[in-house]
Structure formats: C-alpha cells, structure tokens
Amino acid sequence: MSVIQRVLPPEPPPPALAAGWSASRIIGHLFLAIWIAGSVALFLFLVGSYDSQKMIQYGPGYLSGLWITLQLVIISVVLGAILSVPVALGRMSTNKVFGALAYVYVYFFRGTPLIAQLFLIYYGLGQFRGALETVGLWTFFREPWYCALFAFTLNTAAYQAEILRGAIASVPVGQHEGAAALGLPRNVTFRKIILPQAMMVALRPYGNEIILMIKGSAIVSIITVFDLMGETRRAFSRTFDFQTYLWAAVFYLLIVEALRNLWAVLERRLTRHLKR
C-alpha cells in the first residue's frame, strides 16, 4: 500500500445522479409519445379502413408503379453517370470553350427545378413534332416515359458531374506527383490511384443523389406516367380515400431507408482500411 492510499483510502465512485425530469427529458418524451401515438394512429387507420376490394383493385397497381419508379431511377442514374464523365472532364478542362459549355450545362440543370425541365422537354418538344419526325426522334419523344427518362438523365448527369469533379479535386496533388515520380503513365495514375480515392469520397454524395432521384421521380405522375405516385393519384381520384397517399408514403420511406442502410454498409466496407 502506497502512502497516498493510506492517507486517502480508495472510495467507491459517487452514485450515478438520479435521472430527474429535466425540461429536455419532458420535451423528448412528449415528442416521442407524439410519434408513437402517430404511428399507432396510422397503423389503426390503415387496418381500420382496410378494404379487401380496394386492395385487390389497386394493390397490383401500386406494385407495378413501384417497379416503374425503380426502373426510371436506375436507368437514368446509370445513363447519367456515363454522361457525367465528359461533363466533369469539361468542367476540369483548361479549354475555355469546352469548359464554358460544361459550366452552362451544369448551371442550367442545377439552377432550375426538375419539374420545369420535365415540362420543357415534354410539352415544349411536343411543339416541334414535324422537325423531330424528320430526324426520326419523334417515336422517342412521343412517349412520356422516354421524355421523363431523358429529362432525369440530363438532370442527374449535371449533379453527378459536380460530384465527380469535387471528388477528383479532393485527391491531394501529392498523389499525382507521387505517381509521376514513379514514372507511371497518366492514364494508369488516373485509373489506379486517383479514381479509387475519388470514388471513396464520392460514395456518400452518390447515395444522396440516388435518393434525391427516387424522391424527385414522383413528379412524372403529372405527365401521365403511372409510377408509384401516378398509381397513388389514380387510386385517390377514384376513391377519395386518404389512405392511398399514406400507403405511398410507406412505400417511399421503405425504399429510401433500405437504400440508406445499404449505402451505410457499403461505405463501412469500402473504407474499412482507413479505420484504425
């Protein structure tokens, strides 16, 4: 036993403070109670107004709408990713013309509402049927689904180009210099050193962009595409039953949450070498 322990004998730690009902605790419990009451009410409402006939009539529509939404988002995100590469290169290019073009493209699509872009393409191009027919593009722009796909691809390409550019710019110059010092060719440097590091940075914004597209895709219902929102509006317009919208909310929340969790797992896995 050391001197200090003789002078000051060890004592047990002080007992934990009794958790009192502080203001924040009360507010927290109050809001939680509201959420719980809300979800119970939602559940009871959905169960209480369960109508097997409506389910049979509109249920399959919801599933096909969900599938249309997913198709639209997946295809436009993939096509947008491809298109974003030249745009991002343009934004980083030292060529003034190329750079300005890419800048205007990105500024336009990020600066205006997606719904306005969709109307511009859908109704605006409808005006030029004759011209589009002569170049053989009318069969494409005739269909609302393709118009939506086209608008979404252009839109997401602009956002993805900025994500890509930001991610590449975030890789320190030392990485380029190091590769150059090793005598690696520029394309190998880009592919093996810059891109993998950039993608790590870009992972999270890409995930957010996909979520934004899922949510944004709801507007195609206005140009007669029967996506999840379109089917919901159709069901609502015939039944005037509010639960049609609540079901849509449940579906959208499920997809977005599933995607968010998937992304979190992906991110943990891909960055595990950075953890200590």
Binding site: Y123, G126, Q127, R129, W138, R142, P144, I222, T224, G230, R233, R234, S237
Partner: peptide, 18 residues
C-alpha cells in the same frame, strides 16, 4: 389510357400527335 390533370393538357398532346 393516359390521365391528364385538365382537358387543356390532353388537347396539347393530341395536337402534337402524342
């Protein structure tokens, strides 16, 4: 079937041949 919010919109679309 294509459903439009108002009659004006289907008129635009039938005129353009959509």
């Amino acid at each position: 079937l294509r459903l439009y919010p108002t009659a004006d919109e289907y008129k635009l679309d039938i005129a353009s041949g959509r």
